[in-house]
Simulated assay, not measured.
Amino acid sequence: MKNRLFHIAIIIISILVLTAEFLQIDWLMYLAKPCIMLWVISYYLLNTQKNQLEKNTLIAFSFALLGDVLLMFQKQHESFFILGLASFLVCQVSYLQVFMKPVLQKDIRKSILVMQPYFLLFFLIYAGSLFTAMYHQLEHFMRIAVFVYAAALTAMAATALNRKGYVAEKSFSLIFTGSLLFLISDSLIGINKFTFQIPYAGIWILGTYIAAQYLIVRGLIEEKFDK
């Protein structure tokens, strides 16, 4: 019953966030957007035993929440975008560590990225193409910041793929799909901000972001059940 109510809550939160974005209702966005990660944190705590709580998971969730809040104010000053980017960088690195854990606990030499390194090439090409598309629109500092973030983001998605065979298929599928949606969401942010305007960009960005965080937390909980 509790989980059913939680799922109703995330549907309501998603509708409010997307409505606020579509109708450009700032006060509703300020209220609803932080609820995305507050829901994720609450759902994780509700469905995870105290002795199974992962510090890096909670760090990732917390900095995603901070990033969400900071990015809401980027129109007021560009520094909020930089701070938001930094917060999500911590989030991505923390996710990367969480996703690597089941692989490192066993034999990394048998992982998909070691046995079939051409999969890594896909992520490198994607990151390189994305950075190249934005390169000429970025100032020197932003080039460095975006490059570092793009590297961390794609590394996070790559480590999500690397979990295959180390966790149950359901946990792997949820987290890998979530990581790809996260990759798409943040790619859309960069393209829309630095390259060209995407129609209804906010809807696409927030929709894929909410789905990404939802799938990731579901996948992490499923991993706990598998043990």
Rank of each mutant, 00 (worst) to 15 (best):
L38A: 09
W39N: 05
W39G: 08
V40L: 11
V40F: 01
V40D: 02
V40S: 08
V40E: 04
I41D: 09
I41T: 09
I41R: 04
I41C: 06
S42V: 11
S42C: 11
Y43Q: 07
Y44C: 03
L45E: 13
L45P: 09
L45D: 10
L46F: 11
L46I: 11
L46W: 08
L46E: 14
N47W: 05
N47V: 10
N47E: 09
T48I: 12
Q49G: 15
Q49P: 00
Q49E: 15
K50Q: 14
K50H: 09
K50A: 15
N51S: 15
N51W: 01
N51Q: 14
Q52S: 14
L53R: 15
E54N: 15
E54W: 07
E54F: 07
E54D: 15
E54M: 10
K55L: 15
N56L: 10
T57C: 14
T57S: 12
L58A: 02
L58M: 12
I59S: 01
I59W: 03
A60Q: 04
F61N: 02
F61V: 10
S62Q: 04
F63H: 00
F63K: 00
F63M: 12
F63I: 04
A64T: 13
A64N: 12
L66V: 14
L66C: 12
L66T: 08
L66W: 07
G67H: 01
G67Y: 01
D68F: 02
D68Y: 03
D68M: 07
D68G: 05
V69R: 01
V69C: 09
L70V: 01
L71M: 08
Q74D: 14
Q74N: 13
K75C: 03
Q76F: 13
Q76N: 11
Q76K: 12
H77Q: 11
H77V: 06
E78S: 15
E78D: 14
S79I: 15
F80L: 06
I82M: 11
L83A: 14
L83T: 03
G84I: 06
G84V: 08
G84D: 07
L85E: 00
A86F: 13
A86L: 15
S87K: 02
S87M: 04
S87P: 02
F88N: 00
F88R: 02
L89C: 08
V90E: 10
V90S: 05
C91M: 15
Q92L: 11
Q92H: 15
Q92Y: 07
Q92S: 07
